[in-house]
C-alpha cells in the first residue's frame, strides 16, 4: 500500500518541522528531551491522522474518521506543539514589534475561545461545510485553519512564555468548561439528527460497511464522547496541579502568624 498524503498537509508539516529545526539551528540551542518528545508526538499525530490509510478512508467518505482527524487537529496536536516549544524559540516571534499586538489580542482567553468556537462551528455548519470542506477538493486548508485556531485555543493554558502569562488554575478549569459549549453545540445536533446532515456524505457506501446515517451517528458520538472524556482528563490534570501547588505554597502576602486559639477560661472581661 502506498502511503499517500495531501499536498497541503505536507506543506504544513514541512513548515512545522522546518521552522522548529531552523529556530534551533539559528539560535544554536537545543530543546529539552521532553520538549522534543512532545513536538515529535505532535508531528506523529498529524502524520498518523492526516496522511496514509486514515486519510484514504476519509476520502472514501468515512465521516467518523473525518471527525477523528479534526479532534487530533484541535485537541491533540496543538497542546503537544505548545508543550514542545521552548520559551527561547517562541520569544523572538511573539515579542516581535509587529507581531506582539496581534498576538496579545489573539491570545486573550475570551478572544481565543470565541475564535475557536466560531471557527469550529462554522466548519461544521452544513452549508459552509458542504461548500468549503468537500466540494472544494483541497482538505488541507480547513485542516490548517483548525490547527491554527487549536494553537490559539490552547495558548492561554500552555503558553511557553512568561511574558504571556498562563491563566490561573481556577480560570483554566473555567476555560475548559467553557469549551463544552461549541463542542456540544456542534456534536449534539449531528448525533441526534434524523437524517444525514451533510450532502457530501449522503451518497454511496461508507467504509467499514456503515450506512451514511450510522456513520454520521458514530462520528457525532466520537466528537461528543471523545471531547467529553478528553476534556475531563485535561480538567483532572489541571485540578491536581492546582491542588498540589496550593498544598505546597505557604500563605502569601500575610505575616505567618501561628494560630492562636482562644483561652479556655470563659471570662472575656479583658
Amino acid at each position: 500500500m502506498i502511503w499517500e498524503a495531501d499536498p497541503a498537509t505536507l506543506i504544513v508539516l514541512a513548515l512545522l518541522v522546518g521552522g522548529y529545526a531552523a529556530f534551533a539551528l539559528a539560535l544554536k540551542r537545543w530543546p529539552t528531551v521532553i520538549q522534543l518528545i512532545a513536538f515529535s508526538g505532535a508531528i506523529l499525530a498529524i502524520v498518523g491522522a492526516l496522511t496514509g490509510p486514515v486519510d484514504e478512508l476519509v476520502k472514501q467518505r468515512s465521516f467518523a474518521l473525518y471527525i477523528f482527524q479534526q479532534l487530533v487537529l484541535v485537541f491533540i496536536a496543538p497542546p503537544l506543539i505548545l508543550a514542545g516549544t521552548p520559551d527561547w524559540m517562541a520569544r523572538p516571534v511573539l515579542t516581535h514589534r509587529l507581531i506582539e499586538p496581534l498576538a496579545r489580542f489573539l491570545t486573550r482567553p475570551l478572544v481565543a475561545y470565541i475564535l475557536f468556537g466560531a471557527a469550529f462551528a462554522l466548519v461544521h455548519f452544513p452549508p459552509v461545510c458542504d461548500r468549503v470542506c468537500h466540494v472544494h477538493p483541497v482538505y488541507g486548508d480547513v485542516d490548517t485553519v483548525l490547527l491554527l485556531v487549536g494553537l490559539i485555543l490552547w495558548f492561554p493554558l500552555l503558553s511557553p512564555l512568561p511574558e504571556y502569562p498562563r491563566l490561573s488554575y481556577p480560570m483554566q478549569v473555567m476555560y475548559i468548561f467553557l469549551l463544552m459549549i461549541p463542542m456540544t453545540a456542534v456534536a449534539a445536533p449531528i448525533t441526534m439528527a434524523q437524517s444525514v446532515v451533510y450532502i457530501y456524505y449522503v451518497e454511496g457506501p461508507h467504509p467499514f460497511g456503515l450506512s451514511p446515517m450510522a456513520d454520521q451517528v458514530l462520528g457525532g458520538i466520537i466528537m461528543w464522547v471523545g471531547q467529553g472524556v478528553y476534556l475531563m482528563f485535561v480538567f483532572s490534570a489541571i485540578f491536581f496541579r492546582w491542588a498540589r501547588r496550593e498544598d505546597e505554597t505557604p500563605p502569601f502576602n500575610r505575616r505567618p502568624v501561628p494560630l492562636r486559639p482562644l483561652p479556655r477560661q470563659r471570662s472575656h472581661a479583658i
Binding site: I34, Q35, A83, D87, L158, S159, P160, L161, P162, Y164, P165, R166, L167, S168, Y169, R245, F252, N253
Partner: peptide, 14 residues
C-alpha cells in the same frame, strides 16, 4: 517548560 509563567498569575494577591 517554565513553571514561572504560571506562578506569577496564580498568586491571588493580584
Amino acid at each position: 517548560m517554565s513553571e514561572s509563567a504560571v506562578e506569577h498569575v496564580t498568586a491571588p494577591a493580584h
